[in-house]
Nucleic acid binder design. Structure first.
Lengths: 244, 244
DNA sequence: CTCTACACTGTATGACGTACGCGATTATCG
DNA sequence: CGATAATCGCGTACGTCATACAGTGTAGAG
């Protein structure tokens, strides 16, 4: 019975059933789709109300009948760009959560602008909530309480975001506007140039031993899997403790 | 020997030792400090080149002798606003990493604009790298290899960011511009209004049982500690496996 | 047929990032 | 000591953006 924020209402298909006046030429879905096309092609920076409107053959102000502000539009985009979560195929909770988290990360890598947009708002649209629901469902048979389940999923979500961000930020080749460092230098080169072994002993020792510096390493799945297993090991330990 | 991006060079105090011409009236530190004051008071949205310049009694274009672009300025801010990492007080690795992660989260909560700014760039300034160094140092005596140490710290960093983001996004009272949802409705109320038990069975069951919906719960330290322990348990398990 | 809610347009405003070129300043070189 | 040339911060200007406001035409309701 609470009053929903107008955009949220529309995200859930609760369009006002208007009768009088000219028939609407637009709808939220088309607007969102147009905005997403631009974001996919040119990054978030390319998404302006004018550009979106132009792509729909409409004056910029026309959009404001459907979204109260640009921020509203971004919120809707953040949900609409999300596909259906991976299928639980009778997988045990751990395997499902692993694929779930990986799929989340892959999504963020395939649409980098989602990273900037999803961080700002908790999931409120149908798509993102369905991801949340599926992950919680996977934990359904475990002895964790609701809060623990929720926190577990939160930690996994965060890990996916972190992994994606790291890959994207360190790869100067990222197509996103402003990706990479201002110059073209590789991350490792910058660190090597700048680190004083006296004030950054551990880090510069690592640099010298050559393990770091090839930031491409993080693109590999193994590095992502490492931290993921860390988390899942923790969950598993807790479950065992709770059950035994 | 690599060419550093100009801002990075200046971040590390490598100011060009210029001699000719009028003595500079500004320096990167003052500019950054002014920008941070604005961001602290009004959020990132309040930070514009003009506003920063005005606070320094200078014309907007004057700043561009020092920062190349606004994005450069944000990068410098992202480092400059970071305090020294917590002291290792002879703490075992686990205890230190716990306080380290918590301190990181608290920093993000005390300066919410850092969340938007730190995510975009890997640490390249002296302050953020010193946090990284300290965390890696804490893992120094463990049998983990360099890559594993690095990935561990990455996961913790991400968890701090996730926790801070969640707290900040769900608390409508956040002072940041655009915080909370468009309307004033609480997150829990929105979910209750919108969730269909048929398509979101797990989530809506949780809502009904009342565990969720008080999103303030996440502000409590216990919730943060939960996921943190998950991670650290995972690390500990790995260490035991590696050592035994 | 009239009225009125509504969908979209046109114009305008103020803020923003920043390109460009200026005079003023001051260390260096002749 | 005077000329040179680099550098500083400033003024102006442009293009873009989000969005407020006031229409203008449309089409269902009475």
């Amino acid at each position: 019975m609470a009053e929903l924020p107008p955009v949220v209402a529309r995200m859930w298909g609760r369009e006002p059933v208007s009768r009088r006046g000219p028939r609407p030429r637009l709808d939220l879905a088309s607007i969102t789709a147009a905005a997403i096309e631009i974001a996919d092609a040119e990054g978030l920076a390319g998404v302006s109300m004018g550009r979106v409107a132009a792509r729909l053959g409409v004056a910029p102000m026309g959009l404001y009948r459907y979204v109260g502000s640009k921020e509203d539009l971004l919120t809707v985009m953040a949900d609409s760009a999300v596909p259906a979560p991976p299928d639980r195929g009778g997988l045990p909770w751990r395997d499902y959560l692993a694929t779930w988290t990986r799929a989340h990360r892959d999504l963020l890598l395939s649409r980098p602008w989602l990273m900037a947009v999803q961080g700002g708002t908790p999931p409120m649209g149908p798509r993102r909530l369905s991801w949340l629901d599926r992950a919680l469902e996977a934990l359904g048979a475990t002895p964790l309480d609701d809060g623990e389940k929720f926190n577990t999923v939160t930690a996994l979500t965060g890990y996916a975001l972190t992994g994606a961000t790291l890959v994207h930020a360190t790869s100067a080749a990222g197509g996103e506007r402003g990706a990479g460092i201002a110059g073209a230098a590789e991350y490792g080169e910058v660190l090597a140039e700048v680190l004083d072994p006296r004030t950054y002993p551990t880090l510069s020792a690592m640099m010298r031993s050559g393990t770091l510096g090839r930031s491409e390493g993080w693109v590999e799945d193994a590095d992502f899997a490492f931290g993921l297993d860390l988390l899942l090991d923790g969950v598993e330990a807790l479950i065992r403790r709770r059950a035994g």
